[in-house]
């Protein structure tokens, strides 16, 4: 890990003079890590550069670009974060112009922690570390193998623990709507715990993550109730790939399939009559 840190620090040090800032992680008080904008002229800040735990940096990029649309920025991103930036670009949340992606390849330990199928970047031209293969997601596989009744029981059990903190939505870089369906009392019961069955909150959120979730697993990590939220998203991602030949973050030019028109063959694969 420390080798990667040294390499990353060196990479940023070289890029720093050519840009207005580099988004990365910094160790703060008591060793707690948070996103930070490293600025040229302050390379000493890189002494507290950090790699892990990862943070939702695509969102940091959005915050900064919103205030400074023309800033020349670089961002240290892992595979999931790169996918996040790409998807946010497709939805006009961030700009790829004037943006340098510094790819940070995950190590085995990190990939296992995230049950990550793609722990590597594909677009970044500058990268640190060597890419490794994806790992299986035993949780999702085990869930997929359950019967209908077991699935129902599984989520009943899980969602009764939900404390409606909105953390899964708040931390998600792909959740950027100005008006959120989850806050609309037409769909989700406001002011109530536990959420009634079936949990419209979670099904609606899963629906809205269709072709958007980049499998960064930030939602699971921030969930105080430890609900394995990514299961939904990963299963749907599989369907989206099969039905609409779409994978998040893979091809910058490919439009997300929620856009109106059916492409050639989409309908045939949708399983509808």
């Amino acid at each position: 890990m420390s080798e990667r840190l040294t390499a990353l620090r060196e990479t940023i040090r070289q890029i720093l003079p050519q840009v207005d800032g580099v988004i990365g992680l910094k160790t703060g008080p008591a060793g707690i890590v948070a996103p930070y904008l490293f600025k040229p002229g302050h390379p000493e800040m890189l002494d507290s550069l950090a790699l892990w735990p990862k943070e939702p940096v695509p969102d940091t990029l959005k915050i900064i670009q919103k205030a400074y649309p023309n800033a020349r920025l670089a961002i240290v991103c892992r595979g999931c974060e790169e996918r996040g930036v790409v998807e946010m670009f497709k939805h006009a949340q961030v700009s790829l112009e004037n943006l340098t992606l510094i790819g940070l390849q995950c190590v085995q330990e990190e990939a296992l922690f995230c049950r990550c199928a793609k722990p590597y970047t594909v677009h970044a031209r500058v990268t640190v570390g060597s890419p490794i293969a994806g790992v299986p997601d035993p949780l999702t596989e085990a869930f997929a193998a359950k019967s209908q009744a077991e699935k129902l029981a599984f989520w009943k059990e899980q969602f009764q623990h939900c404390i409606k903190c909105y953390g899964c939505r708040n931390i998600c870089p792909q959740c950027f709507c100005n008006v959120c369906a989850l806050e609309d009392e037409k769909w989700v019961e406001t002011g109530r715990l536990p959420l009634p069955n079936p949990s419209l909150y979670h099904i609606i959120r899963a629906m809205h993550m269709t072709a958007k979730c980049v499998a960064c697993r930030e939602c699971e990590e921030t969930c105080p109730a430890g609900i394995p939220l990514a299961i939904h998203f990963r299963l749907v991602a599989r369907d989206v790939k099969e039905m609409f030949h779409y994978e998040t973050g893979a091809v910058i030019e490919q439009k997300p399939p929620q856009l109106l028109t059916l492409e050639e063959g989409d309908y045939e694969r949708s399983g509808l009559p």
Binding site: F143, Q148, A149, E150, K151, L152, A153, F154, W155, K156, P198, I203, A206, M207, T210, I231, H232, L235, V236, D239, V240, M243, F244, P257, Q258, L260, T261, L262, D266, Y267, S270, G271, L272
Partner: peptide, 23 residues
Amino acid sequence: NGNHRTAKRMAILRQLLEYNGIE
């Protein structure tokens, strides 16, 4: 192409219902 949208959304929704244990 309004019903293109129907086709796409409902196909995913049917899957999601299954994933939630709803037939």
